[in-house]
Amino acid sequence: MSATTPPATLAALPLGDDALILSHRLGEWAGHAPVLEEEVALANIALDLLGQARALYAELADVLGSEDEIAYLREERAFLNCQLVEQPNGDFAHTVVRQLFFSTYQQPLYAQLTPSLPLAAKAVREVAYHRDHAEQWTLRLGDGTEESHARTQRAVDALWRYTGELFRPVEGVDARWEELEEEWDTGIRAVLGQAGLTVPDSPRHGAWSAGAGRQGVHTEPFGRMLAEMQHLHRSHPGATW
C-alpha cells in the first residue's frame, strides 16, 4: 500500500488479520473441545471473528484483491496481526486466557473506533459476549481445582509477554492507545484478582516482551498454522462448490 492509502484502508489489514488468525485458531478446536457446549461456543466466537475479517478485507478489495486472495495467497511476512492471536491453542486454559487478553483489548478498541469504522459499532456488541465468556471461564478455572488453577496461571504467565504489543500505535488506527492500555490493565487485574490468579510482574514492554507482528514478524508456530490454513486454497486455485 502506498503513502496515499487512506487511513481506514490502512487500519483494515491489521485489524482484519487479528480477527482472521484468531478465528482460525479457535476453529482448530472443532472436534476437540472439552464439552459440546464449549465446542459450539468457540465455533460461534470464531464465526463472529471471521465475519469481522471479511468486512474489513472487503474495504481492501481495490488495493489487495478479493477476500480469498487476502486470506489465502499472502505470505507470512505480509500478515500484520499481533503475535498474541497466532499463539497455539495449547490446553483449554491457554485458549481461554488468550481470548480474555484479546477480547479485553478488542472491545474498548472497537468502542473507540465506532465513529470512523462502520464495522466497529456492530462488532463491539458481539465482542462484549466474547469477553464475558472468557471472563466466566477464567473465574471457573482460576478459582477451580488445584490443577485448573495451576494451568491457568501457567497460561497467564506464558501469554503475558505478548500483550504489550497490543498497545503500540498502529498506522491508520485512530485510537487513544494509553487510555486503551489503562482500561485493559484495570479490567484484566480485576478478573485475575477475582479468579485468585497472580498478575505477572514481568514487563509487557521492553527487552523481555515480544511482538513485532504489526511489522510482519511472527513467531515460529505461525508459519505452520498458515501452511495448514492456506493449503486447500493453494492446492485447488479457483475451486468452487
Binding site: A128, Y129, D132, E135, Q136, V191, Q194
Partner: peptide, 12 residues
Amino acid sequence: RGPVLVGLSPTH
C-alpha cells in the same frame, strides 16, 4: 442497554 452480560461471579 447493550448486551446482557452475566457479570463477574464465581460460576457461570
